[in-house]
Amino acid sequence: MADQAYSTVHHAAASGEHHDAHELPNFITLLHQSYPDNAVISFLNQYQTLFFSLFAAGLICFLCIRAARAESLVPQGLRNFMETIMEAIANFVTGILGEKHAPKHIPFLGTLFFYILVMNWGGLLPFWKSPTSAWSITFPLGLIVILYVQITGIREQGVWNYLKHLAGNPSTVVSFILLPMMLPLNIFLEVLAVPFSLSLRLFANISSEDRLLLKFAELNTLFTYKPFVFQLFANILVITFSVIQAFVFMLLTTVYLALILPHDEQHGHEEHSANAQHAH
Protein backbone atom coordinates (compact mmCIF):
# COMPACT_ATOMS: atom_id res chain seq x y z
CA MET A 1 0.00 0.00 0.00
CA ALA A 2 2.87 2.33 0.81
CA ASP A 3 4.38 1.61 -2.57
CA GLN A 4 1.08 2.36 -4.26
CA ALA A 5 0.81 5.74 -2.55
CA TYR A 6 4.39 6.28 -3.43
CA SER A 7 3.87 5.64 -7.11
CA THR A 8 0.70 7.74 -7.05
CA VAL A 9 2.63 10.72 -5.76
CA HIS A 10 5.31 10.07 -8.32
CA HIS A 11 2.69 9.82 -11.02
CA ALA A 12 1.02 13.03 -9.88
CA ALA A 13 4.38 14.78 -9.91
CA ALA A 14 5.29 13.37 -13.32
CA SER A 15 1.96 14.32 -14.88
CA GLY A 16 2.40 17.92 -13.78
CA GLU A 17 -0.52 17.87 -11.31
CA HIS A 18 1.72 18.56 -8.35
CA HIS A 19 1.49 22.29 -8.93
CA ASP A 20 -2.16 22.25 -7.82
CA ALA A 21 -1.88 19.43 -5.29
CA HIS A 22 -1.56 20.53 -1.68
CA GLU A 23 -2.04 17.12 -0.09
CA LEU A 24 -1.50 13.44 -0.80
CA PRO A 25 -4.14 12.00 -3.15
CA ASN A 26 -6.99 10.14 -1.48
CA PHE A 27 -8.98 7.24 -2.87
CA ILE A 28 -11.86 9.46 -4.06
CA THR A 29 -9.46 11.63 -6.06
CA LEU A 30 -7.91 8.52 -7.55
CA LEU A 31 -11.28 7.05 -8.42
CA HIS A 32 -12.31 10.32 -9.99
CA GLN A 33 -9.12 10.33 -12.04
CA SER A 34 -9.91 6.81 -13.23
CA TYR A 35 -13.67 7.33 -13.75
CA PRO A 36 -14.22 11.02 -14.45
CA ASP A 37 -17.65 10.45 -15.96
CA ASN A 38 -19.14 8.49 -13.08
CA ALA A 39 -21.82 10.66 -11.43
CA VAL A 40 -21.52 9.13 -7.92
CA ILE A 41 -17.74 9.42 -7.90
CA SER A 42 -17.96 12.98 -9.19
CA PHE A 43 -20.41 13.86 -6.43
CA LEU A 44 -18.15 12.25 -3.83
CA ASN A 45 -15.18 14.07 -5.29
CA GLN A 46 -17.01 17.37 -5.06
CA TYR A 47 -17.91 16.83 -1.39
CA GLN A 48 -14.97 14.66 -0.39
CA THR A 49 -14.10 16.68 2.74
CA LEU A 50 -17.67 16.28 3.89
CA PHE A 51 -17.52 12.55 3.19
CA PHE A 52 -14.34 12.16 5.26
CA SER A 53 -15.68 14.33 8.09
CA LEU A 54 -18.93 12.33 8.22
CA PHE A 55 -16.92 9.14 8.25
CA ALA A 56 -14.91 10.52 11.19
CA ALA A 57 -18.17 11.42 12.96
CA GLY A 58 -19.50 7.91 12.39
CA LEU A 59 -16.26 6.35 13.61
CA ILE A 60 -16.27 8.41 16.81
CA CYS A 61 -19.90 7.53 17.48
CA PHE A 62 -19.18 3.86 16.89
CA LEU A 63 -16.09 3.76 19.12
CA CYS A 64 -17.59 5.84 21.95
CA ILE A 65 -20.90 3.99 22.03
CA ARG A 66 -19.12 0.64 21.85
CA ALA A 67 -16.89 1.70 24.75
CA ALA A 68 -19.89 2.95 26.73
CA ARG A 69 -21.68 -0.38 26.32
CA ALA A 70 -18.69 -2.42 27.49
CA GLU A 71 -19.26 -1.46 31.10
CA SER A 72 -17.30 -3.47 33.62
CA LEU A 73 -15.87 -3.07 37.09
CA VAL A 74 -12.40 -3.66 35.69
CA PRO A 75 -12.43 -1.89 32.30
CA GLN A 76 -10.39 -3.39 29.50
CA GLY A 77 -9.42 -2.66 25.93
CA LEU A 78 -11.36 0.08 24.18
CA ARG A 79 -13.41 0.91 27.29
CA ASN A 80 -10.25 1.35 29.34
CA PHE A 81 -8.67 3.52 26.64
CA MET A 82 -11.76 5.72 26.26
CA GLU A 83 -12.23 6.02 30.02
CA THR A 84 -8.63 7.18 30.41
CA ILE A 85 -9.01 9.89 27.77
CA MET A 86 -12.47 10.96 28.94
CA GLU A 87 -11.35 11.17 32.55
CA ALA A 88 -8.30 13.21 31.54
CA ILE A 89 -10.53 15.61 29.58
CA ALA A 90 -13.01 15.79 32.47
CA ASN A 91 -10.24 16.57 34.96
CA PHE A 92 -8.75 19.20 32.65
CA VAL A 93 -12.09 20.94 32.07
CA THR A 94 -12.96 20.76 35.77
CA GLY A 95 -9.62 22.39 36.58
CA ILE A 96 -10.57 25.42 34.48
CA LEU A 97 -14.35 25.73 34.86
CA GLY A 98 -14.63 24.45 38.41
CA GLU A 99 -16.69 21.58 39.78
CA LYS A 100 -19.95 23.55 39.59
CA HIS A 101 -19.95 24.33 35.88
CA ALA A 102 -17.69 21.66 34.37
CA PRO A 103 -20.02 18.60 34.32
CA LYS A 104 -22.48 20.36 31.97
CA HIS A 105 -19.79 21.26 29.43
CA ILE A 106 -17.50 18.21 29.48
CA PRO A 107 -19.49 16.30 26.78
CA PHE A 108 -19.40 19.26 24.39
CA LEU A 109 -15.70 19.94 24.87
CA GLY A 110 -14.78 16.26 24.81
CA THR A 111 -16.77 15.59 21.64
CA LEU A 112 -15.10 18.58 20.01
CA PHE A 113 -11.68 17.21 20.95
CA PHE A 114 -12.38 13.68 19.69
CA TYR A 115 -13.97 14.87 16.48
CA ILE A 116 -11.17 17.26 15.59
CA LEU A 117 -8.46 14.76 16.57
CA VAL A 118 -9.88 11.95 14.43
CA MET A 119 -10.33 14.32 11.48
CA ASN A 120 -6.78 15.65 11.93
CA TRP A 121 -5.31 12.16 11.94
CA GLY A 122 -7.18 11.22 8.74
CA GLY A 123 -4.37 12.62 6.60
CA LEU A 124 -1.97 10.06 8.05
CA LEU A 125 -3.83 7.13 6.54
CA PRO A 126 -2.88 6.17 2.99
CA PHE A 127 -5.53 7.27 0.45
CA TRP A 128 -7.38 9.16 3.14
CA LYS A 129 -7.70 12.86 3.92
CA SER A 130 -7.84 15.26 6.87
CA PRO A 131 -11.22 16.98 6.58
CA THR A 132 -9.93 19.73 8.88
CA SER A 133 -7.60 20.84 6.10
CA ALA A 134 -10.72 22.44 4.58
CA TRP A 135 -12.07 25.68 6.00
CA SER A 136 -15.62 24.60 5.19
CA ILE A 137 -15.24 21.93 7.88
CA THR A 138 -13.47 23.97 10.57
CA PHE A 139 -15.59 27.11 10.19
CA PRO A 140 -18.84 25.40 11.26
CA LEU A 141 -16.99 24.10 14.32
CA GLY A 142 -15.95 27.65 15.21
CA LEU A 143 -19.51 28.75 14.60
CA ILE A 144 -20.88 26.05 16.90
CA VAL A 145 -18.37 26.99 19.59
CA ILE A 146 -19.34 30.64 19.61
CA LEU A 147 -23.05 29.80 19.55
CA TYR A 148 -22.60 27.38 22.41
CA VAL A 149 -20.54 29.88 24.41
CA GLN A 150 -22.98 32.75 23.89
CA ILE A 151 -26.04 30.62 24.64
CA THR A 152 -24.32 29.35 27.79
CA GLY A 153 -23.51 32.96 28.74
CA ILE A 154 -27.13 34.07 28.37
CA ARG A 155 -28.45 31.02 30.25
CA GLU A 156 -25.99 31.29 33.12
CA GLN A 157 -25.84 35.06 33.54
CA GLY A 158 -29.24 36.18 32.32
CA VAL A 159 -29.80 38.56 29.38
CA TRP A 160 -29.08 41.76 31.33
CA ASN A 161 -25.81 40.54 32.83
CA TYR A 162 -24.81 39.05 29.49
CA LEU A 163 -25.30 42.43 27.79
CA LYS A 164 -23.42 44.12 30.63
CA HIS A 165 -20.61 41.65 30.10
CA LEU A 166 -20.55 42.44 26.37
CA ALA A 167 -20.45 46.12 27.20
CA GLY A 168 -17.40 45.52 29.42
CA ASN A 169 -19.29 45.85 32.75
CA PRO A 170 -19.38 49.68 32.81
CA SER A 171 -19.34 51.09 36.33
CA THR A 172 -17.69 54.51 36.08
CA VAL A 173 -18.62 57.64 34.14
CA VAL A 174 -15.65 57.16 31.81
CA SER A 175 -16.68 53.59 31.03
CA PHE A 176 -20.22 54.75 30.24
CA ILE A 177 -18.84 57.44 27.92
CA LEU A 178 -16.69 54.81 26.20
CA LEU A 179 -19.64 52.39 25.94
CA PRO A 180 -20.52 53.14 22.27
CA MET A 181 -16.97 52.25 21.35
CA MET A 182 -16.48 49.35 23.77
CA LEU A 183 -19.69 47.50 22.95
CA PRO A 184 -18.98 46.97 19.23
CA LEU A 185 -15.36 46.27 20.05
CA ASN A 186 -16.30 43.59 22.56
CA ILE A 187 -18.91 42.13 20.22
CA PHE A 188 -16.30 41.95 17.50
CA LEU A 189 -13.60 40.48 19.76
CA GLU A 190 -15.70 38.11 21.80
CA VAL A 191 -18.31 37.03 19.28
CA LEU A 192 -17.50 37.73 15.66
CA ALA A 193 -13.76 37.14 15.64
CA VAL A 194 -13.89 33.87 17.56
CA PRO A 195 -15.19 31.50 14.85
CA PHE A 196 -12.74 32.96 12.37
CA SER A 197 -9.74 32.76 14.68
CA LEU A 198 -10.58 29.23 15.81
CA SER A 199 -11.39 27.83 12.38
CA LEU A 200 -8.57 29.55 10.49
CA ARG A 201 -6.00 28.43 13.04
CA LEU A 202 -7.09 24.81 12.76
CA PHE A 203 -7.55 24.87 8.99
CA ALA A 204 -4.17 26.54 8.39
CA ASN A 205 -2.30 24.18 10.69
CA ILE A 206 -3.80 21.00 9.34
CA SER A 207 -3.52 22.00 5.69
CA SER A 208 0.13 22.87 6.41
CA GLU A 209 0.60 19.42 7.91
CA ASP A 210 -0.92 17.86 4.79
CA ARG A 211 1.42 19.89 2.64
CA LEU A 212 4.29 18.72 4.82
CA LEU A 213 3.25 15.10 4.28
CA LEU A 214 3.06 15.69 0.53
CA LYS A 215 6.45 17.35 0.35
CA PHE A 216 8.12 14.64 2.37
CA ALA A 217 6.48 12.02 0.13
CA GLU A 218 7.87 13.88 -2.88
CA LEU A 219 11.30 13.82 -1.26
CA ASN A 220 10.97 10.05 -1.13
CA THR A 221 10.23 9.95 -4.86
CA LEU A 222 13.22 12.18 -5.57
CA PHE A 223 15.68 10.11 -3.58
CA THR A 224 13.90 6.79 -4.26
CA TYR A 225 14.15 5.82 -0.64
CA LYS A 226 11.89 2.83 -0.34
CA PRO A 227 11.46 2.68 3.45
CA PHE A 228 9.79 6.11 3.67
CA VAL A 229 12.37 7.54 6.05
CA PHE A 230 11.24 11.10 5.51
CA GLN A 231 7.62 10.09 5.68
CA LEU A 232 8.15 8.52 9.08
CA PHE A 233 9.60 11.77 10.41
CA ALA A 234 6.70 13.75 8.91
CA ASN A 235 4.16 11.31 10.33
CA ILE A 236 5.54 11.67 13.86
CA LEU A 237 5.31 15.46 13.50
CA VAL A 238 1.77 15.26 12.17
CA ILE A 239 0.62 12.87 14.92
CA THR A 240 1.97 15.27 17.55
CA PHE A 241 0.69 18.48 15.99
CA SER A 242 -2.73 16.98 15.32
CA VAL A 243 -3.12 16.25 19.02
CA ILE A 244 -1.86 19.72 19.90
CA GLN A 245 -4.29 21.40 17.48
CA ALA A 246 -7.26 19.43 18.77
CA PHE A 247 -6.22 20.21 22.32
CA VAL A 248 -5.74 23.93 21.59
CA PHE A 249 -9.20 24.10 20.02
CA MET A 250 -10.72 22.51 23.10
CA LEU A 251 -8.62 24.62 25.46
CA LEU A 252 -9.65 27.89 23.80
CA THR A 253 -13.31 26.85 23.87
CA THR A 254 -12.96 26.05 27.56
CA VAL A 255 -11.40 29.44 28.19
CA TYR A 256 -14.19 31.24 26.29
CA LEU A 257 -16.66 29.38 28.45
CA ALA A 258 -14.73 30.25 31.59
CA LEU A 259 -14.83 33.93 30.61
CA ILE A 260 -18.56 33.96 29.93
CA LEU A 261 -19.60 31.96 33.01
CA PRO A 262 -20.50 33.90 36.18
CA HIS A 263 -17.57 34.11 38.56
CA ASP A 264 -18.76 32.82 41.90
CA GLU A 265 -15.54 33.20 43.79
CA GLN A 266 -12.62 35.56 43.68
CA HIS A 267 -10.32 32.58 43.29
CA GLY A 268 -12.27 31.38 40.28
CA HIS A 269 -12.08 34.82 38.72
CA GLU A 270 -8.31 34.96 39.15
CA GLU A 271 -7.98 31.48 37.74
CA HIS A 272 -10.11 32.36 34.71
CA SER A 273 -8.21 35.57 34.05
CA ALA A 274 -4.91 33.74 34.24
CA ASN A 275 -6.19 31.10 31.81
CA ALA A 276 -7.48 33.73 29.44
CA GLN A 277 -4.18 35.59 29.47
CA HIS A 278 -2.36 32.36 28.90
CA ALA A 279 -4.65 31.48 25.98
CA HIS A 280 -4.25 34.87 24.31
Partner: peptide
Amino acid sequence: AEIIVQLLAFMIVFFTLRKLAWKPILDSL
Protein backbone atom coordinates in the same frame (compact mmCIF):
# COMPACT_ATOMS: atom_id res chain seq x y z
CA ALA B 1 -23.70 23.17 1.68
CA GLU B 2 -20.67 21.76 3.45
CA ILE B 3 -21.03 24.24 6.32
CA ILE B 4 -24.69 23.37 6.88
CA VAL B 5 -24.10 19.61 6.72
CA GLN B 6 -21.10 19.93 9.01
CA LEU B 7 -23.13 21.97 11.53
CA LEU B 8 -25.84 19.34 11.52
CA ALA B 9 -23.34 16.48 11.64
CA PHE B 10 -21.54 17.89 14.66
CA MET B 11 -24.79 18.57 16.48
CA ILE B 12 -25.96 15.00 15.83
CA VAL B 13 -22.61 13.61 17.00
CA PHE B 14 -22.67 15.84 20.10
CA PHE B 15 -26.22 14.98 21.17
CA THR B 16 -25.69 11.28 20.40
CA LEU B 17 -22.43 11.03 22.30
CA ARG B 18 -23.71 13.14 25.20
CA LYS B 19 -26.57 10.72 25.71
CA LEU B 20 -25.02 7.40 24.71
CA ALA B 21 -21.34 7.76 25.57
CA TRP B 22 -20.37 10.66 27.81
CA LYS B 23 -23.16 10.36 30.31
CA PRO B 24 -22.90 6.58 30.87
CA ILE B 25 -19.10 6.60 30.98
CA LEU B 26 -18.80 9.63 33.28
CA ASP B 27 -21.59 8.27 35.48
CA SER B 28 -19.88 4.91 35.74
CA LEU B 29 -16.57 6.62 36.52
